[in-house]
């Protein structure tokens, strides 16, 4: 059973989690005003799938906890997980 370390609830089986997609910075209002249609289209529809460690949103369903996971998308190893506002505090990993 694959175990993911929730920063609030600790190690839990994968079945308790929901993948929320790649973490991406939301454009500021100033950036939005300056974006072309092509740039908007790229932001809305394209994702970076290059191999390596990717920041992602994950959700622990039973407790309603959204958090960030840094996951190696080649090996599917979770490098670390943390709450959105605790990016500088390492929470844990599943090895």
């Amino acid at each position: 059973m694959k175990i993911i370390h929730c920063p609030v609830n600790g190690p839990r089986p994968l079945q308790e989690f929901y993948f929320g997609g790649q973490f991406r910075a939301v454009p500021t209002s100033e950036q939005e005003d300056a974006m072309t249609d092509a740039e908007w289209s790229d932001y809305a529809f394209n994702r970076d799938g290059s191999p390596g460690i990717q920041k992602e949103w994950w959700y622990h369903t039973p407790s309603g906890t959204w958090f960030i996971a840094e996951r190696d998308i080649v090996t599917d190893v979770f490098v670390r997980t943390y709450l959105f506002d605790q990016a500088d505090q390492e929470s844990g990993n599943d090895g």
Partner: peptide, 22 residues
């Protein structure tokens, strides 16, 4: 999937039972 026998008393655990969040 959570090992409840290792859980401390009087502390709530949010997990799934038969696929249902509890």
């Amino acid at each position: 999937g959570h090992p409840l026998q290792q859980s401390p008393m009087d502390q709530i655990i949010f997990t799934r039972v038969a696929g249902v969040s509890c």
